[in-house]
Design a protein around this nucleic acid. Structure first.
Lengths: 271, 271
DNA sequence: TAGCGGGTTGCATTTTGTGCACCCCCTATT
DNA sequence: AATAGGGGGTGCACAAAATGCAACCCGCTA
């Protein structure tokens, strides 16, 4: 890191960082003086800079306490760029998984209804291929990607999603009904990754883990699949590798590792 | 909205907005020239500003295409910007509304000036959804979410908020002026939920109810929207469902069902 | 009433951002 | 091999914006 010359823009951005600091968040935002002290700047210019940031929606002010916090506009930016970033940040992670960690085929996919749409694929000898938005759909219930994507869903939500879906397709070990599927999802939830063993196709095993965005929502899944004779024995290891990579990708999307939906549901409201 | 005087900071932030635009995202990011043209600025300064933003992590550059896109830092900030309680408690409720109660698209949104910013969107599984609404701004006066968010405002406050806003956009039944809007808000206030019938778009109906925090202040709105031929007949029912869910969410945020805005004004201090 | 914490504004100063011209690099085209 | 054009970066003189100090407003309280 070369020592960056200061600039007004850099100083303005530093204000955002300060407002996103643990202390500032914990205290429900900071006022002009506190912020100026923290940044070692004069309060006047901090006041003026904040007004510009507030006009643009990057910060907002609590009317009563006069404190500033990060504004909704930042949220809007992130939400709109999330998909783009998923692909951009996913590609190198997938490449690394293929080349170094696992040496088997890796996919990045999203949920489309009750099916799984693959966005990125990389096979050991080849390069990353971006499958266009009209890629092939596979079922969600008998694939590891699918179960990773469903990992936060409760039983009743599964009922609704899979109402009318036929479970009599796929490999020999595919789930036979929704309850069966639910139990396998519960297992995946406990372990943090999903596995399938000859469910989608005979002779094929796979592991997958969910990718979460900055809201904690599951938005995609990373998965590895390979012939059972090659990957079968080390499937748990592969699952952990995939989970680690998925968490890394989630982190790059702003996930802080705390907001699980399953947790959010029951932890009501701390001060 | 008064014309804000330009400032270098404002111009820098505008670059971020441009990078989050539909076009830029769809094209995998924009290069310096394209950005400069879009902003009507000289490419030299755009280049320099982007370097600062890149150093700070607010944008990042694709090594091959040389295009910039929104960077990890924005996602990190967004994780803070999202009101954790609102989103954490809101997600499961929205999910339930989609899966069980209504089976149509549900949004959670907040007021941003006189527009509505959508934070969470949940789509029923059968519908093909390509447009991501999260992070998008829509008008407040001709949407049900907007009217739910404005439900506590008095006539004079509406005058101030919508001064200078053009009412000649939207669907066939959109309010034609502020008085018209006010009457529809009064109706929503009496019923506890707002509805629109082909106001925002032809063929679209929607219902929304306000979410209140512990002070009784309206901080968000839950809303359902669907094609008229599907939801039109049971719109009042949907409105009541939405209201029940919004009240439940409000309760989880500490609302006791009694406090209203008049009281909230003087009950100051948040913890 | 004076003092204090917190915030904003006026204004002279100067740092910064700006735009122009120019240069680099790559790749089609002739 | 020469050339044109797209995309991106840099040097420099100039104008504009940020800066910091002091003054001021406001509400609170000792």
């Amino acid at each position: 890191m070369a020592d960056e010359p200061p600039s007004s823009l850099r100083r303005a951005l530093a204000l955002l960082d300060a407002l996103a600091s643990d202390d500032a968040v914990a205290q429900g935002g900071w006022g002009v003086n506190r912020l100026a002290a923290h940044q070692g700047r004069d309060k006047s210019q901090v006041s003026r800079t904040l007004r510009i940031l507030a006009d643009a929606g990057y910060v907002e002010r609590d009317a009563e306490s006069m404190t500033y916090r990060i504004g909704w506009h930042v949220f809007a930016l992130a939400a709109r760029a999330a998909d783009q970033r998923l692909l951009a940040a996913g590609a190198p992670i997938i490449r690394r998984l293929v080349e170094k960690d696992l040496g088997e085929r890796i996919h990045l996919s999203v949920l489309q209804g009750n099916e799984v749409l693959t966005l990125l694929t990389e096979t050991p000898p080849h390069a990353v291929q971006t499958v266009a938005w009209a890629g092939r759909l596979v079922p969600a219930h008998n694939t590891s990607s699918g179960r990773a994507l469903l990992i936060d869903l409760e039983r009743d939500e599964l009922d609704r999603l899979f109402a009318g879906v036929r479970f009599d397709v796929g490999g020999p070990n595919a789930p036979r009904n929704i309850e069966d599927l639910n139990q396998r999802i519960v297992l995946a939830r406990r372990r943090g990754y999903a596995t399938v063993d000859e469910e989608f196709e005979p002779g094929l095993v796979a592991a997958a883990a969910p990718v979460r965005d900055f809201r904690g929502e599951v938005i995609a899944a990373l998965n590895v699949s390979a012939p059972k004779f090659r990957l079968g024995a080390r499937l748990p290891f592969a699952g952990q590798q995939i989970k680690a990579a998925a968490d890394e990708l989630s982190t790059q999307l702003g996930w802080d590792g705390l907001r699980h939906r399953s947790l959010a549901a029951r932890s009501a409201v701390p001060a």
